[in-house]
């Protein structure tokens, strides 16, 4: 099975070395191969279940958390905000 592991790792924002990459590629391939045994379905068949309806929430505002609650787990905070590097790449 031809899986572009480098592209996949980038999409997941994870770095893996060659050894782990091979192992994961094998595991993925095995699972995907077993999918080929799954019954085929008509292209137009949909798994959308129209009966699965939910109740909607009333439009009432409630403020139960402070800035401190929200940021107390943040690794780096400045001026009341979480911060990340300016450069992207």
């Amino acid at each position: 099975m031809n899986i572009d592991m480098i592209h996949l790792a980038k999409l997941c924002k994870i770095k893996i070395d060659n050894k782990l990459s091979e192992k994961i590629k094998n595991d993925i391939s095995k699972i995907l191969k077993s999918v080929e045994d799954l019954p085929n379905f008509d292209k137009n068949e949909s798994f959308f279940d129209p009966n699965n309806i939910m109740t909607l929430r009333d439009d009432v505002a409630k403020q139960e958390f402070t800035r401190d609650d929200i940021l107390k787990n943040a690794p780096k905070v400045k001026a009341g905000c979480a911060v990340v590097p300016k450069e992207i790449d």
């Binding site: 505002a61 403020q63 139960e64 929200i70």
Partner: peptide
């Protein structure tokens, strides 16, 4: 211009102090 946000009950208001209308859901 609803009273609360789309997926949580936080206030939907512009121009407030940073990170003051947040909750675990919208963050």
């Amino acid at each position: 211009s609803t009273n609360s946000k789309i997926y949580c009950s936080c206030k939907n208001e512009f121009g407030l102090e940073v990170n003051s209308v947040c909750c675990p859901v919208c963050t």
